[in-house]
Amino acid sequence: MATRTKRYALAIDAKKCIDCKACVVACRAENGVPVGKSRNWINEELHGDWPKLMAVFEPEQCHHCEDPACVRVCPTGASYQRPDGVVAINSSECVGCRYCMIACPYDARFFREDLGVVEKCDLCAHRLDRGELPACVETCPSKVRVFGDLNDPTSEIHQLLEKRQYRVKKHEAGTGPQIYYLL
């Protein structure tokens, strides 16, 4: 959107991922995610035949789409998009209908039975507001994740995406995902 002053996004260099799951643990600790649920996760794919095997690890979470399906279908406006592009949930407005979970092409949301509301990654919006990085980005030991403002030409993510080739997942869903997987 042209009017945004900031557009937060995440670039992921999956080749560096060693599947240590520090990001998942950090997120769990930071956001109080209950056991059995996850705001972020690591996809694991095996390629080739034994003995020539290759494992690919690909971290994933909410894609903070430019045109988020979850926000569109939410009947109360509990799911919303911040001016900086972060898609977040206002828990006090969430009625727990779970329409957003069904609408999300990435299945990035989960239902908290104990609270009766839907949750998902909000890029640690509370940390962003303090000028800090999301917990998963800060904790990643192999520097898989690059977080930043796409609209700032001096930011690392802006320069990285200018130089490197990348892809986004399920482009055809038409929601404008903002996690860029570097090739």
Binding site: C74, T76, E93, C94, V95, C97, Y99, V117
Partner: peptide, 25 residues
């Protein structure tokens, strides 16, 4: 079926024409 049955009234504090569920309620 809602997470909070007693929050159902919130559906009627909003009208979101893009959400089929809001129109439907």
């Amino acid at each position: 079926d809602l997470g909070h049955w007693y929050r159902a009234y919130k559906l009627f504090l909003h009208f979101r024409w893009e959400s089929p569920m809001s129109i439907g309620s």
